[in-house]
């Protein structure tokens, strides 16, 4: 027993792992919370696309030497403008997203692979949470506070939007999603960030029939994924970002195994 406790405690004695776990927790819980509304409003494709859309911004930031969060944010704004532009020329919904985002992903790859490979390309793609510094912790905490307060204040409006009792809240959800994506990209990278946004809510949706419990359960699953991901990374000797992504998605896979008694969802 003591051996197990020692093994579990081992990663947290390392400052890098402890700080990385804290960042993963701070970005994971709010990302999962906003992910619940993303899932409920049928916007998972937008979530994945936003994460991919900021890739060139992240690469450019690494090349220029500015904070990745700024590059990611610029990438997201460009992606949003392109999606709006694609919509204006008559492309609808997911088609507009696909047409706008695919070139951005290609542009990111082009910049990354042309000439000097930017430092930390692996981290941009798959995250490098163990390299997080105190600024990253601060930024993650700030974004977490903004996201959670906004979600708390707008909870009933978001709930009403799915009942036809209020206007669409998709813009608010997409704005919060953009914040969560920028934050999550630090831990999991542009390609894996969506795991924290979508994985825990998928599991929580299967377990809960009301919005508030669903959000709480999703945030808890994300927090557990942050913890177990660091543990897995430490003991298996694998990269922390993919390990956290795996732990964030695993519960969704487990609850999706057909076991009717687990499902509390009403007939709909």
């Amino acid at each position: 027993m003591i051996w197990i406790v020692d093994q579990l405690a081992a990663p947290w004695q390392s400052e890098l792992a402890a700080r990385g776990g804290l960042v993963a927790l701070l970005v994971g819980a709010p990302a999962a919370a906003i992910g619940c509304w993303v899932l409920l409003r049928d916007l998972p494709y937008a979530a994945e696309s936003l994460a991919h859309g900021m890739f060139p911004g992240l690469v450019a930031a690494a090349l220029i030497g500015i904070p990745p969060a700024i590059g990611g944010l610029v990438g997201l704004i460009v992606a949003a403008l392109l999606i709006i532009g694609a919509g204006r020329i008559g492309l609808a919904g997911d088609t507009a997203v696909a047409v706008a985002i695919t070139p951005l992903l290609g542009l990111g790859a082009l910049i990354a692979l042309a000439g000097t490979v930017p430092p930390g390309l692996g981290g941009i793609l798959f995250g490098d949470v163990l390299a997080a510094n105190s600024s990253d912790v601060l930024l993650a905490a700030l974004l977490a506070i903004v996201t959670l307060i906004t979600l708390r204040l707008s909870h009933w409006r978001l709930l009403a939007s799915g009942l036809g009792r209020a206007g669409s809240s998709d813009l608010l959800i997409l704005l919060l999603l953009a914040l969560a994506t920028v934050a999550a990209a630090r831990a999991l990278g542009a390609l894996l960030a969506v795991a924290l946004i979508i994985g825990p809510p998928v599991a929580a949706r299967t377990l809960c029939s009301r919005a508030t419990p669903m959000i709480i359960v999703a945030a808890v699953i994300a927090a557990i994924a942050a913890f177990t991901g660091i543990e897995l990374s430490w003991h298996a000797g694998i990269a922390a970002g993919p390990a956290i992504a795996l732990c964030a998605i695993l519960p969704a896979a487990l609850v999706s195994i057909p076991m009717p008694s687990w499902s509390h969802r009403g007939a709909s």
Binding site: A160, L163, R165, R210, A211, R265
Partner: peptide, 19 residues
Amino acid sequence: PARDGWPATAADVVLCGTL
């Protein structure tokens, strides 16, 4: 107008009417 499977109870729906 409710979306299929929306996670709300009857009381939630009524409460939304007061917003």
